[in-house]
């Protein structure tokens, strides 16, 4: 077993409509193949980042800050995938 790794990064929701169902689904799907634990926090609410409904509960609108914490051996790779999504603005305007 490799040592557990924790990676943390804060993102700003880049797309106009915020983290609604479609982008949240992309987020969950991107993480499906990773084994690390995913926590996403907005202000003082923290949810499981592998849960679509959890992410929706954050009601993360355009411009809001999300702190993403990944724990596990494959956390760095998973973070790369998440970064891609935010850079691509979840393929939205």
């Amino acid at each position: 077993m490799s040592a557990p790794i924790t990676v943390q990064k804060t993102f700003v929701v880049p797309n106009k409509l915020g983290l609604h169902a479609r982008p949240a689904a992309l987020f969950v799907q991107a993480l499906q193949r990773f084994r690390c634990k995913v926590l996403v926090a907005k202000a003082d609410t923290e949810v499981n980042g592998k849960s679509l409904m959890g992410l929706m509960m954050l009601a993360a609108e355009h411009g809001s800050q999300l702190k993403v914490t990944l724990e596990g051996a494959d956390a760095p790779q998973a973070m790369l995938e998440i970064e891609k999504l935010f850079v691509r603005k979840f393929d939205e305007a």
Binding site: L17, G18, H20, M53, M56, A59
Partner: peptide, 21 residues
């Protein structure tokens, strides 16, 4: 439990999504 959390959301757009659940 999930519904309670959703009911607190002010943004209608997000709150509505609980119906899918």
């Amino acid at each position: 439990h999930v519904n309670e959390a959703f009911e607190k959301i002010e943004d209608e757009f997000f709150r509505e999504r609980r119906h899918d659940l």
